[in-house]
Design a protein around this nucleic acid. Sequence first.
DNA 1: GCCAACGTTGGC
DNA 2: GCCAACGTTGGC
Length: 158
Amino acid sequence: MAKRYWLMKCEPAAYTIDDLERDGETSWEGVRNYQARNFMRDDMQVGDEVLFYASNADPSGVTGLARISRAGYPDQFSWKKGHKYFDPASSKEKPLWFMVDIAFEKNFHGTIPLETLKSTKGLEQMKVIQKGSRLSVQPVTKAEYDIVVKLASKIPRP
DNA sequence: GCCAACGTTGGC
DNA sequence: GCCAACGTTGGC
């Protein structure tokens, strides 16, 4: 299957691209949205490219790149009683939720703000710029991905 | 911190 | 199966 492209959101309070750079790789558990789960369970493949998006940030926007390093597998936190991601509807035998692993690829050392994404030609269809879009895992096209990577080169070096 | 938009739940 | 109530997301 051809390589796919994704955008994954995370609040800086929970995890940042700096954390991923330090860790090298991380698991992406805790997604509790069916649409997002389906993408992780059914469509994400090792090697797919990821735009790392910081939500609820100042400013919110894309802060780096990652790559899928493990395709969808059951979110074991969903059946750990007492865990914040516990869901009684999920079990080892019948997992309800899924997760993937992602590997660090690039730290922009800056942010491509949402506002820039909104005003950039070719990105008009991106879900993340639609008002009220809450999907935390969403597909992007190769063209969109390439445009965002190009925008990253314009972020001034720290 | 506010609040609009969204997804989910549950009563009927 | 509808829809009001609720909890959450996320921009500002």
